[in-house]
């Protein structure tokens, strides 16, 4: 039987209260959101916090998905199924629905949160790649106030983020710009499993030209979950098979996969390229459909 090591359980009643508890209890205190990464880690004793601060009561305060000005704003406590069920998300950023459909299973998606996914920073976390491709920003709050960080700057390494010990992620903001098309492609061993490899593509088209692009890569050791080389290949180009192939080659060349039980490094590198190409083709088609 796997149970966590003993800890003191605290329940936060607001964001300010959560931050106050983090400050008061010190660095051995940890937040728990959906708990679907953190509780398994505690059961395996890979994490042994002295205090656990439950932020599920903040689901009302931080669980909404809305449009604010020209940004889509996703609360950190939105569950995976909230994102999947949101029409406004699907309308603007189908990459997020593509990704959510293949994250875990429907029961896990009832519980796991968007904030927990990004803060877990597992190298195979799908939303880290998808939101990085969309050039989203993370809103982080501490007692000193609020700061924003690009999602692609959030992760400093496997399971590490720039969110401080006494800070919490409160929202994700995704800028809505004209001419956007986006898509996600993942290969997994079986339904509901973590990726062997996955790629997110976003393009912003202006007059038949790709004016901006985002390429996110998951589970292949890409720095910050992105391929800036592939993005540079795409920017300023008219979409074509050659341009897509060049971007895919750049994505494959720039990643750093490792061999593990999910497959050999060379297979994952191949997937990084092929899935980038497939995601790009669908993203471009969606952008053109949206413009038509």
């Amino acid at each position: 039987m796997q149970v966590p090591a003993p800890f003191g359980y605290e329940r936060a009643t607001s964001v300010d209260h959560a931050i106050q508890l983090l400050e008061q209890l010190g660095p051995e205190a940890r937040l728990v959101a959906g708990g679907h990464s953190f509780i398994p880690m505690m059961k395996l004793r890979l994490a042994q916090p002295e205090h656990v601060i439950d932020i599920n009561p903040l689901a009302a305060e931080l669980g909404t998905i809305s449009i604010d000005g020209s940004d889509l704003v996703i609360g950190a406590m939105a569950r995976h199924n909230d994102l999947l069920g949101s029409a406004v998300v699907g309308e603007h950023f189908p990459v997020l629905h593509d990704a959510e459909r293949v994250i875990a299973d429907p029961v896990v998606r009832n519980r796991g949160t968007i904030g927990g996914s990004l803060c877990q920073a597992d190298p195979a976390e799908d939303l880290s790649a998808a939101l990085s491709a969309l050039h989203a920003t993370a809103v982080i709050r501490g007692s000193g106030g609020t700061r924003t960080v690009a999602v692609r700057e959030l992760h400093t390494g496997p399971y590490e983020t720039v969110v401080g010990d006494a800070e919490m992620l409160t929202h994700i903001r995704v800028p809505i710009r004209n001419g956007c098309g986006s898509a996600y492609e993942k290969v997994e061993r079986r339904v509901g499993d973590w990726a062997i490899a996955a790629a997110a593509a976003a393009v912003w088209m202006d007059g038949g030209i790709i004016s901006d692009a985002g390429i996110g890569l998951c589970a292949v050791g890409a720095e910050h979950f992105v391929s800036t080389d592939a993005e540079a290949v795409l920017r300023g180009q008219a979409p074509s098979d050659d341009v897509i192939a060049a971007a895919a080659a750049a994505a494959a060349a720039g990643c750093n996969p490792t061999t593990d039980q999910r497959g050999p490094a060379e297979y994952k590198r191949h997937l990084a390229g092929e899935l980038t190409a497939r995601a790009l083709r669908r993203a471009i088609a969606r952008a053109q459909g949206a413009a038509a």
Binding site: Y9, G35, H36, P40, D105, V107, V108, N110, R111
Partner: peptide, 22 residues
């Protein structure tokens, strides 16, 4: 495996991955 699924406020979840206190 999902054998532990119960509904919390109508929503199914895996109860091996939820704290009783929650």
């Amino acid at each position: 495996c999902g054998v532990c699924v119960v509904a919390v406020d109508g929503v199914p979840m895996k109860s091996c991955t939820v704290l009783a206190a929650m």
